[in-house]
Nucleic acid binder design. Structure first.
Lengths: 343, 343
DNA sequence: TCAGTTTTGACGTACGTACATCATTTTTTT
DNA sequence: AAAAAAATGATGTACGTACGTCAAAACTGA
């Protein structure tokens, strides 16, 4: 048989269309007994609401906002493009996405931005930011207004976000460590860990995961303390120079954050780059080229297109109050080498 | 402004609704000059047809069929489940999927099955099969009937399939080789390549890619001729035993096809399994466990859920005659280790 | 049992599009 | 210029659902 409609449910339950409608949309004025009959009929027939028709009748429009950090990193730019592309592929589904940028290191600015969003009453917000008390409070207020909230890339675990779209940073660090341990050929040596900011929660978690695997499984490697170069090319150069000088048994570099360009530029001068195992995060135009040039050995990445589409799907599901198809939203930790580089 | 509708297009073009309708749906009886005015209005307004409303009005139903090999491999089973799950997640979009199984080694049986499908006039068919002249012809007939055809997992390049959903097998083999080369610690040694069937096109391509990378980049490794065990546990055992005996410098095993269980069972007896680098294809319940147990070092995989959803999206796009959002349908070659194993 | 309240039914309109029918206008042909 | 043909307009119904209004029916309490 064709898909059952509300009409079928009504006659199956022996009630009128209006009553089925009341039950389906949670309107008042239906006796519990009657509601149960309707639910039983729904179960028997396997009725599923036709969301396209429902959205049409409702004139439903999904207005989402994505809040991204205003930095100049290639990764953020890639993310922005992916969101816009995902949204434009969805205009058929009456969905619009506005991407706004906020200063990443100013929790108050982020909170203000989130607060300001409430005026325009979007249906959902995807937030890519570090967790701070200010952000947490701002999210709580969004939730009070009934706005769906998804944490993008970095989880905001102690906030009231509805869903986290991204990967577990510790696992990502563990994966990096496994590759580092297996890629280095000399059994003994030191590994340099670099990040642009030591404070970022993701950096801390990645480092935790990385250390744990190296310690347990590659005891012949020793990991140097993390150093941060704060997006400063000069500082990057000094750090690298010092590390290369002080440790002639350096075998690998694990770059946990953005800014690989500066690091690799600094390394290139030394001439030891070809022998070093260099593992980075996120696939950007630069890391892509560096993979091909064999300067980077592996990139731990997340599929940005998938992240963007997932975030929008999650926000939609949440603002409709329907269940999320979890399997589809589980983001994988991608290992990218020069041989499986996506086109 | 809100999204423009056909009404807006009509008044913008200064014609009636009926004329816009004739233009949009390619009905006859519209002067070219008038049609141009309508198209101009569409462009000016940025009108996009609301497919949900259109499908509703049309009572459009998508009936798709997936043709899978009737083998007992865990991978095929995983694929089947993924297709059914993807379809059930799509019933909202009035899409149904029927999965049928055919004997994989009988080209005539596959052709007959495809031929038989034409009676029920599905909107699209996803085919997971080896390319043979019979299959090619059967696909040509499907296309004559206006049925969308997607090749699933193995491409059917010289057929008239609309789209290939899967990864390039040579690249997959190259990726396996890169990992093999970098994972083995002794610099010299032999690598055993095993498959269940030497005839499968994918096996041949994987082998090509594998050899090419080993030859160019890991010359200290030598790859033994491929051996096939034809899904026969006894044969698998003999092959493994012979390889282990004849080559005490065996450092790795590359398993190109299904049936890792038999191979690993055979290897386990020998006791050298822990030192061997074992690389397999496809994430199944068995390879997953073997990864955790450190019997398999890496799995080259494709995201089966993604494959299934992609196949359905592609068939839908093709049967609607709309463009495919290529970036979304590009399947990645996943490298799975025990650290980035998806839950 | 009656009034009051709650529950249910009947019905109409709308969403954006598809599609069919018939009337009217415009163009082409003779 | 008239007749024929082609193009266009006007209008109505449908898809499955949402939502509103009003009347009828079923309950409730005293």
């Amino acid at each position: 048989m064709a898909r059952p409609t509300v009409h079928d449910v009504a006659s199956e339950a022996g009630v009128s269309l209006a009553t089925v409608d009341r039950v389906l949309n949670g309107r008042s004025g239906v006796r519990e007994k009657t509601a149960n009959r309707v639910h039983a009929a729904i179960d028997r027939l396997g009725y599923v609401r036709d969301t396209s028709a429902a959205n049409l009748a409702r004139k439903r429009e999904y207005n989402f906002v994505a809040v991204l950090p205003k930095d100049s990193s290639q990764f953020t730019e890639t993310m922005r493009k992916a969101l816009i592309e995902a949204a434009s592929a969805q205009i058929t589904e009456r969905m619009t996405v506005k991407v706004i940028s906020v200063m990443p290191d100013d929790p108050h600015a982020i909170a203000r931005a989130l607060h300001g969003l409430r005026r325009s009453k979007p249906d959902g917000v995807a937030i890519m930011a570090q967790e701070t008390p200010q952000v947490r409070d701002a999210i709580a207020r969004l939730k009070i207004d009934g706005i769906a909230v998804a944490a993008l890339l970095s989880d905001l675990p102690s906030s009231e976000r509805d869903f986290f779209v991204g990967v577990n940073s510790q696992s990502a660090g563990r994966t990096a460590a496994l590759l580092m341990g297996r890629f280095v050929t000399n059994t003994k040596g030191k590994v340099l860990v670099v990040t642009s900011s030591l404070m970022a929660r993701d950096s801390i978690d990645r480092r935790l995961g990385f250390d744990s695997v190296i310690l347990d499984e590659f005891p012949s490697l020793s990991v140097l303390p993390s150093v941060e170069f704060r997006n400063d090319p000069e500082r990057a150069r000094r750090i690298i120079a010092r590390a290369l000088e002080g440790h002639d048994d350096l075998v690998g570099v694990y770059s946990m954050g953005p800014g690989n360009q500066h690091l690799i530029d600094a390394l290139r001068d030394d001439g030891r780059l070809p022998e070093l195992v260099y593992i980075a995060h996120e696939l950007t135009p630069y890391t892509r080229v560096a993979l091909v040039n064999r300067e980077i050995d592996a990139v731990i990445a997340q599929n940005v297109g998938h992240l963007a589409r997932s975030a929008l799907r999650v926000l939609r599901a949440k603002s409709d109050g329907v269940a999320i198809f979890e399997a589809q939203e589980r983001i994988r930790i991608d290992i990218i080498t020069r041989e499986n580089l996506p086109e």
